[in-house]
Simulated scan of single mutants.
Amino acid sequence: MPTHHPEAARLAEALASGPFSLALRLALKSSGLSLDRIQVRLRERDAAVSKTALSNWQSGRTQPERPDSLRALAVLEDIVGVPGGALSALLGPPRPRGRWLTQAPGDMRADQAWARPDGLARALERMGAGIDAVSRMAKVAIHIVGTVDQDQRLRTMRHQLVLRAEVDGVDRHTVAHRSDVPRTMEITDTVGCRLGRRRADAETGFTTFELLLDRPLRAGELVSVAYTMRTDAKEPYHSQRVGRATRVAGIQVRFSAGALPVRVYRTYLPSIGEPECDETEVALGASYTAQVTVADPAPGIYRLCWDWD
């Protein structure tokens, strides 16, 4: 394919350096085929993939991992006209096992919660922490309020958390955030904590940061903290990972009156490697706010999603 075209050059660059979601998105666009048409062609070659799965792969919500998904990806490479193995090479190594099996009683394992836990491990290592840092405190209650502006950018996410120390002497809450779209990120307006070290892994889009507590806690002790994440990402959803300790989890997103989405819905995944459950429509309220609130939620990944067209 000619690379003097800006779109072709972007595709070539993405195929060379990733991430997978961006390369797939550009390859689909370059093919000129709709998701419906691609679905038909995959089915004709006995490699059926749902439109939801295709959408999730190109948005970075999930990635193909199971043998049937990887076989379908090989067929998809041929359908969209990229070299064989070009997309699958961007998936990275299989989800790690072994050290990922360690977890605190109240939380999900890293390989259950994230598609690229290797990136999480690297970001934490750059912060002088191990993979267990993200599970030394369990989330008992989660309340998140986001705002999306008229440019369709997710501008702020206000996090209010009730945390439980899982070990004696814990003095910080380690937070992980991942995005496949370019964005800036600033942590402000902390309450009950202050911002500590922050590190990133550019290859996988991970950012990790510490919220330093006012004092060390005993195992089982509760504490409330709050902070605001300010960003400029053109994200089409917000994900929240919920562990076994969580008693209530709520996500609210308020949209600008001048740029309302055509559709808002929620989804749930037991873990990153599982097929996504059915989408459930979510109504916009009079204040242009959509929300999902769950009491005694099953562990997993809860998403509030929106479509612009």
Rank of each mutant, 00 (worst) to 15 (best):
R61F: 11
R266A: 08
R172Y: 03
R95Q: 09
A72I: 02
V175H: 12
L35P: 03
V175M: 11
A53L: 01
E125K: 13
M127T: 07
S239G: 14
A249Y: 04
N56C: 00
A53M: 06
G81W: 00
K234A: 15
G243P: 10
R158V: 15
A249H: 07
F209H: 13
V82D: 11
D168N: 14
R122V: 14
I142H: 08
E210A: 13
R266V: 02
C193E: 06
V181F: 00
D189H: 14
H5C: 11
I144R: 00
I79Y: 13
V191F: 05
A72W: 02
A259W: 01
R43C: 02
T208H: 02
I38F: 08
G32T: 08
H177R: 09
V134P: 01
A23M: 11
D46P: 01
A257R: 13
V134T: 15
R241S: 07
Q58Y: 06
T207C: 00
I187M: 00
A16C: 03
D307A: 13
L163C: 09
D118L: 09
R126L: 08
Q152S: 12
H4S: 13
F255C: 09
Q39L: 02
V40S: 11
T289L: 09
P275M: 04
Q39S: 15
M108N: 07
S224M: 14
E279W: 00
E44F: 02
S135Q: 14
V145W: 03
R25E: 14
G146D: 13
V170L: 10
H173S: 14
L222Y: 12
R126V: 01
V175E: 14
Q103N: 05
F209D: 05
D151W: 10
R263L: 07
G196P: 08
D309F: 02
T188P: 04
H173D: 13
G146A: 14
L33Y: 09
P6E: 03
D214E: 15
V181D: 06
R99M: 12
E125V: 10
S50V: 01
G169P: 12
T289I: 07
V292I: 08
K234M: 10
G119P: 01
G192T: 10
L73T: 00
G285A: 11
V282S: 09
A200W: 01
Q103F: 10
Q63I: 05
L28N: 03
A115F: 03
P105G: 12
P117D: 03
R99W: 15
I272S: 15
L90V: 05
R10Q: 15
L11V: 04
D296G: 08
Q58T: 00
R45W: 05
T52G: 14
P6Q: 05
G85L: 08
G119M: 06
S55T: 05
L70P: 06
D68V: 13
A290S: 13
E210F: 12
Y288H: 15
L11D: 05
G84P: 01
G300K: 04
S271T: 09
A165E: 07
M108S: 10
A47H: 11
S21W: 00
V82S: 10
D168S: 03
W57Y: 15
R230C: 10
Y237N: 03
R37L: 13
